[in-house]
Simulated scan of single mutants.
Amino acid sequence: MTTTTRIHALDILRGVAILGTLGTNIWIFTSVTGPAGAPGAAESVLAFLSNGKFLGMLTLMFGIGLELQYRSALRKGMRWPGWYLFRALLLLVEGLLHYVLIFEFDVLMGYAVTSMIVAYLIGRSDRAVRTWIAVMGASHVLLIGGVTALLFAYGGDAPGILDTGAIPGTWFDQVMTRIKEPLLYRVEAVFIIPMGIAMFLTGSRLYRAGLLENSERGARLRTRLMAAGLGAGIPLNLIASFADPKLALVDRYLAAPLVAAGLLGLVTALVHRLGERPGPLRAGLTNVGRTALSSYMLQNLIAGVLCYDWGLGLAQALADARPWWVVGAWAGICALLMVLSTLWLRRFARGPMEAAWQWAYMKPRARRAPGGDREKVSV
């Protein structure tokens, strides 16, 4: 199996995860400012379908991407983590700008910090990595379990995705609120670092085990991943979602990552089963995946313009049409991203944010290269 095939499958997986993540965030963008009644059954089910699952897929694939960067550095005889830490720092800066200017629930900052930690672990022995996965995973389970036990003991409900409203006011009001209240809006990014470490390392090892290979061993691994992730994750997901609001943390941070692993196996299996069969959906998902960073930031900007009061204000104007207009908004933004990414990649090799990131990453390295030989510093 060729490397190109693996990367192509990874592009589709990224595209699915990016658009699926919008499926979670769209409920935040479309929330109505001020008191609102409890969501109806249809809205609860629709939110359940995306809550945390595709973000979990994206987290696993970040681990795969880190593994590819590690392998590339080894092939070129480069010191590791070395310049990768600068790459992670650039992601942290981009995430900070995204958080302040566009969306308070940015994930890039958390990924950047996690990748800095995992960069020192990814090259260790399989035994050491399994130990780290077990320790970080157990720490995360104990944390979620402990907080959930306190909720049952002393009352109160954990907030679910439908309880998380957008910041009201003008764009400037939103920016100032994010600046003034980082502890409120960044607590999740810190809260899930142990889970992120475990999932990054799991993604790395799944890649090494042949997850993306169109081979017998890859097929066996995907089958086991689907059986474990979907078989165990979906029942837990259903119970945590609908049995009691106090289980909201179990739903988002324990059940959803399990389902995400199963979805990773399922989508990869479908990609290989369909082969290289062309089609607009496949092309669109691939191109969104190739421009994943740009698409992630752009989809949140578009949703803000459509939904917030400083934009078109559709969240308020179409409040009575929930939840179906929300589904339509998600589908429309997804279609737009697929079209825009396809048109962009006809003229450029990378998405706009990817190109800016590459320039910022390569510029200082080119200056340090002997004789300005760019070939020696290519990534």
Results as ranks from 00 to 15, higher is better:
Lys376Tyr: 00
Ser31Cys: 02
Arg14Ser: 12
Gly196Trp: 04
Glu375Cys: 08
Trp171Pro: 03
Thr21Gly: 15
Ala331Arg: 02
Leu301Asp: 00
Val250Lys: 00
Ser378His: 13
Val107Ser: 14
Ser139Lys: 02
Leu150Asp: 02
Asp157Gly: 02
Leu13Arg: 05
Leu121Trp: 15
Met353Ser: 06
Leu212Lys: 04
Arg290Trp: 03
Leu85Thr: 10
Leu121Cys: 08
Leu97Gln: 01
Pro39Arg: 06
Leu211Asp: 10
Val187Ile: 11
Gly40Met: 09
Gly23Pro: 06
Glu67Ser: 15
Ala292Gln: 12
Glu43His: 08
Arg130Cys: 08
Lys246Pro: 03
Glu276Tyr: 09
Ser294Phe: 03
Gln174Lys: 14
Arg6Pro: 01
Gly328Thr: 07
Phe348Arg: 13
Gly65Lys: 08
Met1Ser: 10
Arg322Pro: 02
Val129Phe: 01
Ser125Tyr: 07
Leu142Ser: 07
Thr5Cys: 07
Ile144His: 01
Phe191Val: 10
Leu247Phe: 03
Leu293Phe: 14
Leu258Tyr: 07
Val118Ala: 04
Gly156His: 03
Asp373Gly: 11
Thr170Asp: 02
Leu343Met: 11
Glu375Gly: 14
Tyr361Ile: 07
Gly328Trp: 09
Gln358Tyr: 11
Leu258Asn: 10
Ala73Asn: 06
Gly289Leu: 07
Asp106Ala: 06
Thr342Arg: 13
Val45Gly: 00
Gly304Val: 00
Gly40Glu: 06
Asp157Pro: 02
Arg124His: 13
Pro364Gln: 11
Gly34Thr: 08
Gly289Asn: 08
Ala366Val: 13
Ile7Lys: 15
Arg346Trp: 02
Gly95Cys: 09
Ala138Cys: 14
Trp83Asn: 07
Val16Trp: 04
Met362Trp: 08
Ile64Gly: 07
Leu183Ala: 12
Gly262Arg: 08
Leu89Val: 04
Ile28His: 13
Tyr70Gln: 11
Pro245Tyr: 12
